[in-house]
Simulated scan of single mutants.
Amino acid sequence: MKKIIQGMLVLGSAYFISTSYAASFDCKKAKTITEHAVCDNRSINDADVKMATTYTIIRHLVPMGTRGAIQDQQIKWLQLRDQCRDNVSCLSDVYKMRQQKLDLYMDRVYKQGPF
C-alpha cells in the first residue's frame, strides 16, 4: 500500500512539474502576491506540488468526517499561507508545517488503512 501511494505522489508531482501550474492553481492565472511568489520560486512551487498532491491523495483515502476536517484545515492553512505574501522564508515554513500535518495523516493511512 505504501509503495502504491508513493508511486501516486511521484506521478502526480511529475505531471504538475511539467506544466505551468503550481499544484493548487494555474500560475498563468495567479492573482495574489502570494500566488505569484509561489510560482516564481522553484522550491516553494515544488513544496506546493508535493503538498497539493498529498492533500488530494489523503482526501480520497479518508472517510467523509475526516475529509471534512482536513478540508477545513486546508482552508485555514491557505489563509495563513496568504499572510506570508511574498516572504519566501515564511512561505517555506508554512508549507513545511502543512506537509508535516498531511504526512501524519498519511502515516495513519499506512498503519491502519483508510480511516
Rank of each mutant, 00 (worst) to 15 (best):
K28S: 05
K31R: 15
A37M: 01
A22W: 04
S20D: 00
Q79F: 05
D26K: 01
I33G: 03
T54L: 08
A30Q: 06
N41A: 06
P63W: 10
Y15W: 14
I5M: 10
A37V: 01
K76I: 02
T34K: 06
N41L: 07
C39T: 09
D26M: 01
T19M: 09
K76P: 01
H36G: 02
A14N: 13
I58W: 05
Y15L: 13
T32Y: 04
D46E: 13
E35N: 07
K50E: 06
G68A: 04
D40M: 05
A22S: 12
A37K: 01
S24H: 03
L78K: 11
A14R: 14
N41S: 14
T53W: 03
Q79W: 04
R42W: 08
K28L: 00
A37L: 02
C39M: 08
K50Q: 07
D46T: 09
S43G: 00
D26Q: 01
G65F: 11
G12Q: 05
Q6E: 14
V49H: 06
K29Q: 02
Y15E: 09
D26L: 00
E35I: 07
G12K: 07
A30D: 03
I44Y: 01
S43A: 09
I57P: 06
D26I: 00
D72K: 13
G12C: 10
R42V: 06
L78V: 11
I33S: 10
S13C: 12
